[in-house]
């Protein structure tokens, strides 16, 4: 699978490893500060609201809405994305209040609309990586 998949694969690091492990199990995990209770994404090491480094992983509902989106027509790099265009990248605002960048799948580009309700769906792209994508809900 990995040999034919040309698109960039995420390189998990100590801050993000549990997130990607969650995706592998098809669960969308958000980093939650255990001092002030706020969620954050991307899952950086510190809570920007209270400065705490204490945290836990909390499963998100996977439901959200389209906040903004683009339709990529010109592939960059050409050799990697030529077969993908046109594709939609969207900022998804989850019910929990954080925003993710992802692809909108199962929906033609012209049908995408602001505030469109969407739900997470996972795409297994390598032995270790599954990507959280979104489809109309």
């Amino acid at each position: 699978m990995e040999n034919t998949y040309l698109k960039p694969l995420p390189v998990p690091d100590p801050d993000s490893e549990p997130f990607w492990q969650g995706c592998k199990r098809h669960r969308l995990l958000l980093r939650r500060c255990t001092d002030c209770g706020r969620l954050r994404y991307p899952p950086g090491p510190v809570c920007a609201h209270c400065g705490s480094r204490a945290g836990e992983w909390r499963e998100a509902s996977g439901r959200g809405r389209v906040y903004s989106w683009i339709v990529v027509r010109h592939p960059v790099p050409q050799e990697v994305f030529a077969a993908e265009v046109p594709y939609v990248v969207a900022l998804i605002e989850l019910e929990e209040g954080v925003r993710l960048a992802s692809n909108l799948v199962g929906c033609p580009p012209e049908a995408v609309a602001a505030d469109m309700p969407v739900a997470v769906t996972f795409e297994d792209v390598s032995e270790t990586i599954s990507l959280p994508k979104f489809r109309p809900a």
Binding site: P8, L9, P10, S16, Y87, L100, S102, N103
Partner: peptide
């Protein structure tokens, strides 16, 4: 092009 650091949350989606 290596999706590490912050780009692991953007580049894998072709952004």
């Amino acid at each position: 092009f290596r999706a590490q650091g912050i780009t692991q949350f953007t580049a894998p989606f072709g952004w």
